[in-house]
């Protein structure tokens, strides 16, 4: 249990997006969150990674309460994330996009920039080495000097992974990592996610593609209307009455 939420609740105006969710993420495993559209999955991610403050409840990371920390502080602690839309800078190269990922581990400031100090040069080197390393890990070395605008959707997803990895995280949160890519490419990305877990990273992801989740995840939590309705291994989830009902009733079993 590297990260825990306790009765996490988020209200937007009168709407309850996430309600009383207590969940633990297991270290070194692939943890998945599934649920019909609008079940509050992304909101749950946003709460953990500090994008939105929760209305009620607490979040603990390695025993430390991080509930009220801002997003950048949470990233510094070792929680990285990707977004559904990759948000990359299209006009820059893949490499240039990824370099900034290691920025949070550096200390250079304006003074260093203006006087091009030794520290800046050293840290720029570190950032570049880190970028090369994560590009290699995500299998992007061959496109690293291409403009992001010119690479495929699947490659963009990998760049987003690479960026998250460049922050040297302990947990990576992947928000629908395979949305908008074809089945073959989904397979490839699933392999990459597995590779991340094998390397010792803790993975937590939101996904719609059931087949992929069932073969990939070690542990699954199911959200429906903002509430946790089930939790367990893929086997257990598959046979859970309530989950089946939610998916049939919700009408959007897969997207």
């Amino acid at each position: 249990m590297i990260l825990q939420t306790s009765q996490l609740t988020k209200k937007f105006g009168g709407n309850v997006a996430v309600k009383d969710v207590s969940f633990s993420i297991q270290q070194g495993k692939v943890n998945a969150i599934i649920g019909p559209n609008g079940a509050g999955k992304s909101t749950f991610f946003n709460l953990i990674t500090g994008i939105h403050p929760p209305t009620e409840g607490q979040i603990f990371y390695k025993g430390e309460e991080i509930t009220k920390y801002p997003a950048n502080k949470i990233a510094e602690l070792g929680l990285a994330r990707t977004f559904q839309t990759t948000n990359l800078f299209e006009r820059a190269t893949v490499f240039d996009n990824v370099v900034v990922g290691h920025r949070l581990r550096t200390k250079s400031n304006l003074f260093d920039a203006i006087f091009r100090t030794k520290r800046l040069k050293r840290e720029e080197e570190t950032c570049k080495e880190k970028a090369l390393e994560v590009l290699d890990f995500t299998g992007l070395s061959n496109v690293s000097d291409q403009l992001v605008a010119n690479i495929s959707q699947e490659e963009k997803k990998r760049v987003a992974f690479a960026l998250a990895l460049a922050t040297e995280p302990e947990i990576v949160f992947l928000d629908e990592p395979t949305a908008g890519v074809n089945p073959d490419e989904t397979e490839e990305l699933a392999l990459l996610i597995k590779k991340m877990a094998e390397k010792g990273l803790t993975v937590c992801l939101i996904e719609h593609k059931m087949q992929m989740i069932m073969s990939l995840a070690d542990q699954i939590m199911v959200l429906n209307y903002g509430e946790k309705i089930a939790e367990g291994t893929p086997e257990e989830i598959k046979n859970n009455e309530e989950v089946i009902k939610a998916y049939l009733g919700g009408g959007s079993a897969s997207a």
Partner: peptide, 20 residues
């Protein structure tokens, strides 16, 4: 510099920059 790259990251997506 890294400072400039940081600015550009913010222009590109504040949400992403924060999460980095």
């Amino acid at each position: 510099s890294l400072t400039g790259r940081t600015f550009i990251a913010i222009r590109n997506s504040e949400e992403l920059a924060l999460s980095l």
